[in-house]
Amino acid sequence: MATMAISKSKLPDLSKIKPVDEIGVNERVERFCTRSIKNEAKNTALKLTLSMIDLTTLEGQDTPGKVKQLCQKAIHLHSSLPGLPSVAAVCVYPTMIGTAREALKNHDIRIASVATAFPSGMSTRSVKLMETKYAVSEGADEIDMVISRGAMLAGEYSAVFDEIAAIKEACGTAHLKVILETGELGTLDRVRKASELAIHAGADFIKTSTGKIQPAATMQTTLVMLQAIRDHYHATGNKVGMKPAGGISTSKLAIHYLVMLRETLGNDWLTPALFRFGASSLANDVLMQLQRQTDGLYQSPDYFSKD
């Protein structure tokens, strides 16, 4: 089993990556959406989905009050339904980490922060490193970084790779999620290449999108990234996590993602330690479905707290 130190990790040979079969990916994704999910499995999947959510607020208009409210939502998802798991993490901007940490103390919810000039990534290496260190020192458990898409598209793969490796080092013990921003990469081939770069540079998670660019997460790009994770696991035995983010707002779609995850990577990945949803409105839809499973009535958003 490879236990290479991160500093020694090497730029992978991207020329050896086989081109992605786009038609094949589309067909495969279509199949994932046709599975029949029975009630019991649905309940389990809904609860698992909740436990995998990174409850997110990443707006210029975020205030400490808004972040506190989001943390309250993370702790008390829907008190009238007993036995609910809590969400995995809340995801905020670096300046809001302190507020979130205060609001979440004594609770087992992690704090994720974006860093590295999110969402564009258009800044210098030193600024990005500084921001990452700041976020870690503020108490972030997880760092969501963005790659330099400009460098990626210009073919400067080693620059992208070095940057991820440097940020990984700056993270220390904090987990690193690498956002590829697939909506700006254009092709599935580039998504696959970027996944390989991020995984080899030491990413703990690879993540589809910032949520600021359309298209955000799609099942197609997620599948390509899952395949990169699978191939890496077969080659080295290392398990890398996956986080689709942006545009996943219904329970039905979330369950499709779980089906895809299960059928691509197996049961080992069905845990918040290796799979997350980056979402803001998904939680309430899942709660509405769980409530419906309980009392049999179709629900209205009026009866669920906004975050």
């Binding site: 009535l297 179709y298 629900q299 209205s300 009026d302 009866y303």
Partner: peptide, 8 residues
């Protein structure tokens, strides 16, 4: 019954 009970 569904028309009458739907909460939305």
């Amino acid at each position: 019954a569904l028309f009458a009970s739907h909460k939305d």
